[in-house]
Design a protein around this nucleic acid. Sequence first.
DNA 1: ATCCGGTTGTGAAACACATCACAATTAAAT
DNA 2: ATTTAATTGTGATGTGTTTCACAACCGGAT
Lengths: 230, 230
Amino acid sequence: MSDHLENIPELAVSRLLRYHHILMGMSQGDVVSSSDLSEKTGYTAAQIRRDLTYFGQFGTPGRGYTVDSLRNAIADVLGINRESNVLIMGVGRVGAALLHYESFEKHRFHVVAAVDVDPEKVGLEMGRFKVRSVEDLSDIVTEGDIRMAILCVPPAQAQTAVEQLVRAGIRAILNLTAMPVDVPDDVSVRPVNLAVELEWLAMAQSRRGGSRGEKAVPETGFNEKKKGGD
Amino acid sequence: MSDHLENIPELAVSRLLRYHHILMGMSQGDVVSSSDLSEKTGYTAAQIRRDLTYFGQFGTPGRGYTVDSLRNAIADVLGINRESNVLIMGVGRVGAALLHYESFEKHRFHVVAAVDVDPEKVGLEMGRFKVRSVEDLSDIVTEGDIRMAILCVPPAQAQTAVEQLVRAGIRAILNLTAMPVDVPDDVSVRPVNLAVELEWLAMAQSRRGGSRGEKAVPETGFNEKKKGGD
DNA sequence: ATCCGGTTGTGAAACACATCACAATTAAAT
DNA sequence: ATTTAATTGTGATGTGTTTCACAACCGGAT
């Protein structure tokens, strides 16, 4: 059983992440069928079952899947079944907001440090954190066993900040600045740009206006029915 | 020329949005070739050319595409070639941060109002806005010709807030709460969940750790090479 | 005028992915 | 035990998407 992530179709991987997320919101003991998941996701039941066969067999015919074990199996194959420490780079309005964000913990991400260049901000108490200086970055990263960072600096400083992060040992960066950044091949960046997200909505809007009613905006950019997802 | 959005493959649409975004960051007069775009996006040059053929012909052989006209053609077919007014629902830490966010304007999104339920917050001056009461929502939406909203209320209030928005006439909602919401079929929701974005990074991490070096995290969840996105 | 490097646009082939439809399996009821 | 209703897992099939490879084209140099 249990093929590896490489052999699973890209599109299936994005759905698996979605299933995982939904399963997290269900009570562990429950049983869920492919058609239950179908309703919640908008994907067909057959597709969901097929997605799962890519890496094993988890269901019992006639009943379905137990939430707990299925969620666990997916997390295993996706490689997200572990804790991660996270650092917040830049405690402007956005960074400060994230320091109070609570849903990271549910997903086993632990925000363990906040860093800024501005001497005015270094030393301030924000939420349960004391803001630390970017000069101590390497130490902070090492001591805290941190590999991921959320980048919330002003766009103009994005590239500089990224280089500091990489030098300090960070391997994965969630880029919330509106600025694209370059990184070495062995570092991952995931950009989140709210303006682009609004473009998706604008597209959906014009689609409706232009013709008859149509599907809602897909989560990843692909097939799916309605219902907001988080 | 110029087929309509319905006939363009879903996956191509998501790439087109990406091209559009990149072209926005280039000087209007310049000429860009499919291989230039290939470098910037990680998609193959052939695929980029193919994507464009779905709705017309814009290039000149031997030279490439003029940034301005290509960007415009893409915006037209995607239906995002117009201004949109946007409302911010909930001015907690996140909502307040967005009131100062500047890159919306570049994408022709105009934040024109901020609304909250909390009487303590109503009337406050934030950025260039005076926070208004959720009770005036319908009026605000009508007067401001607003069809899109960014939802930044606490998760527990998400569904209620969405219902208020829909009743007031909002047709598209960017959901920044970590809570899935239900909407009527004629309303679009686009969820943005930072914890899920971190999961993507965690996946990429474990992929590297598990074997040899590999691709960076794709923007939409699919093929692409390296380089941070915006 | 002609050549030449560079690039587009696109049939055709290859590939990836989704859907269909059903045998195999199970838990529960009788 | 046997039946029943439900649901999984998967060959086979069909559709959608990407890649390949190259003719047609353009602008500039000679």
